[in-house]
């Protein structure tokens, strides 16, 4: 339950701008994935669903799954590594972005 990135076309006419500097909240047009050097990989076998990583993620990219495990929105993960560092059971490891082709 996060806002989604939407297609955005720059205004070509002045009337397409908002009439005041006020805009729809949660309006996202760009991702943050490009910031990442390391990428967190969750091992669902090791994850005990304590949700510590979910709690302390600065970007809110870690969500609970139905079976009380976690999944990561890689579009907005900046790869800070807090989740891996804070995981008490070492269920998250940071891998070099380039090495992780499947993502």
């Amino acid at each position: 339950m996060r806002p989604k990135v939407r297609a955005y076309k720059r205004p070509s006419k002045i009337s397409e701008y908002p009439s005041a500097p006020a805009f729809e909240s949660g309006h996202l047009v760009t991702k943050n994935a490009g910031w990442r050097t390391f990428v967190p990989i969750v091992d669902p076998e090791k994850c005990v669903g304590c949700l510590r990583c979910y709690l302390v993620c600065p970007d809110g990219v870690i969500a609970r799954t139905e079976n009380n495990k976690v999944e990561i929105d890689y579009d907005f993960c900046k790869g800070c590594g807090i989740c891996a560092h804070e995981c008490k059971v070492k269920a998250i490891t940071m891998k070099k972005e380039a090495d992780e082709d499947e993502i």
């Binding site: 002045i14 701008y17 005041a20 500097p21 006020a22 729809e24 909240s25 949660g26």
Partner: peptide, 28 residues
């Protein structure tokens, strides 16, 4: 006014712009 924070249509007010858009707001 539509230039307001509203529970029905949440808005972000007094935002920042890059040089690509700032002048348009001043023009308006």
């Amino acid at each position: 006014s539509t230039n307001k924070m509203s529970m029905d249509e949440p808005k972000s007010l007094c935002f920042s712009t890059s040089p690509a858009d700032n002048q348009e707001f001043k023009y308006m």
